[in-house]
């Protein structure tokens, strides 16, 4: 895993600390879907995106991504890395 990918992934997991603790969820796999798992609703997901964009100073273009994928931990982390490469 690249450093960028790791830092993106770590940031997301850290942002969700409270929610994960509340539900007693431990380690997350890359295909863990943040929305369909019930961890976040769509508003919670938007809050997370706002935090990510502020942290990495990027604007993620979701229009090219598959919604079934971009709400998974792995794909969302990848999207951050791709956007960092483009900007």
């Amino acid at each position: 895993m690249s450093d960028q990918l790791k830092s993106a992934r770590d940031f997301i997991v850290r942002s969700l600390e409270g929610e994960l603790r509340d539900r007693g969820i431990g380690a997350l796999s890359d295909d863990f879907n943040l929305i369909t798992s019930g961890l976040l609703d769509s508003f919670g997901f938007l809050d997370l995106v706002t935090n990510i964009e502020a942290e990495f100073a990027i604007e993620i273009d979701f229009s090219t991504l598959d919604p079934a994928a971009f709400s998974t931990l792995g794909e969302l982390s990848q999207a951050v890395v791709r956007q960092l490469a483009d900007s």
Binding site: I35, S42, D66, P67, A68, F70
Partner: peptide, 12 residues
């Protein structure tokens, strides 16, 4: 609309 696309349905 599948559950995964409900909040962001443009692709669907």
């Amino acid at each position: 609309v599948p559950e995964t696309d409900l909040s962001f349905p443009s692709k669907f």
